[in-house]
Nucleic acid binder design. Structure first.
Length: 362
DNA sequence: AATTCGGGGGA
DNA sequence: TCCCCAGAATT
């Protein structure tokens, strides 16, 4: 794209001035420690600021520097991440910290290119850390930036469209001032978060009002960027059991990768069509864990949504009857008390079961 | 190029 | 309900 130089300078100057007056006081803006900024940017991936804030405080209190994080166990890191979602972020952050201590003398790369080599750091996060922590002049492109650029420049393309990444990326590069890139990047995202919002943007308060193509030419600037329709999410019935044996119940750890990787959960599985929930619980638990159980009363029914599907979770009380001589393979099992379970990281849906166990209300 | 990865809050 | 959030890795 070819922008008039005037648009570029007017936009960045007004944006930075607006930012200096209206920016939120966010915890990661209080220092320029590359490690702290890295942690914040990983947490902020696809996650709103207000959700991240308490997690960020707890994380930096518990793991104040890269070496401390590297020494921690993955279980401890996952426990702190519990409920935040996208757990590969925590696994990558922890693994990267260990690799950096081992191979790089504990120092995070200090360039955009170098940062891209770190697991969990992609184009956005590399540009964010490089510009904010190291003053490198590289442009971030996140959901906020795409929305602001689409409206400012009248780009009528969903970011997911073929070739759209390059168009938005080039636009962001051309608008980026060479000075104060970190402040500029944060200002652009702040504008998207506070003014140029997905619905009902506050154009009246926008510092770019006078140069914004959408505001100047469209009845409703919010039509940009164009929405893409989402596929509907399939639904599954999942049945799990709380299997009691001498005051403890059975939990197992999910495989290290994939959905909810590394988190703990109650045993169970998907109900087949025509199968009762009780039969399903018995079948799933006995097959996988090589034990015999009796399924008892229903404990909870939980609705839960994931990115690509929805589940209804039926939880049943169960009692342990007997076990086979040969233990199950490739399954990490632990019999825990309620107090011990509190120290393990559970998926959100399973946390609701734990809460029911703790407060057997009604 | 598409799909997979969580969970929550606001409209 | 639906949408989308300071995206990255995998297929």
């Amino acid at each position: 794209m070819n922008f008039e130089p005037k648009l570029i300078s007017v936009f960045s100057e007004r944006l930075l001035q607006w930012y200096s007056r209206h920016k939120r006081d966010l915890p990661w803006r209080n220092n320029r420690d590359p490690y702290a900024i890295w942690v914040s940017e990983i947490m902020l991936q696809q996650t709103q600021v207000r959700i991240v804030i308490p997690y960020y405080h707890r994380f930096l209190k518990r793991f104040p520097d890269l070496a401390t994080l590297a020494q921690a166990s993955l279980d401890d890191v996952l426990k702190l991440w519990e409920g935040l979602g996208y757990y590969a972020r925590a696994r990558n952050l922890h693994g990267a910290a260990r690799a950096i201590v081992q191979d790089r003398d504990g120092l995070l790369p200090d360039t955009y290119r170098g940062l891209l080599d770190i697991p969990g750091i992609g184009p956005y996060t590399a540009a964010a850390v490089a510009s904010i922590a190291y003053d490198e002049a590289c442009a971030v492109v996140d959901g906020n930036v795409v929305r602001v650029l689409a409206r400012l420049l009248g780009i009528n393309l969903p970011y997911s469209e073929k070739g759209a990444k390059a168009i938005y990326g080039n636009a962001a590069d051309e608008l980026l001032p060479q000075e104060r890139a970190g402040d500029y990047n944060q200002a652009l995202m702040e504008l998207g978060a506070l003014i140029c919002t997905p619905v009902a943007p506050q154009c009246r308060r926008c510092p770019a009002q006078a140069v914004c193509k959408a505001h100047l030419t469209l009845p409703d600037p919010a039509v940009l960027p164009p929405k893409v329709k989402k596929k509907e999410r399939p639904h599954h019935d999942i049945v799990v059991g709380v299997v009691w044996r001498a005051g403890r119940f059975l939990v197992h750890r999910r495989p290290a990768r994939g959905l909810l990787g590394g988190l703990w959960e109650f045993p169970g599985g998907e109900r087949r069509p025509g199968e009762t929930a009780q039969t399903c619980a018995k079948r799933k638990i006995e097959e996988k864990f090589k034990i015999a159980v009796r399924v008892q009363e229903q404990l909870a029914v939980i609705q839960h949504g994931y990115t690509h599907f929805k589940i209804t979770l039926y939880a049943f009380q169960c009692t342990f009857l007997s076990e086979q001589a040969r233990p199950p393979e490739h399954v990490v099992v632990r019999w825990v008390t309620a107090a011990e379970a509190e120290r393990l990281a559970f998926a959100r849906s399973n946390q609701k079961i734990l809460e029911t166990l703790a407060n057997p209300d009604v």
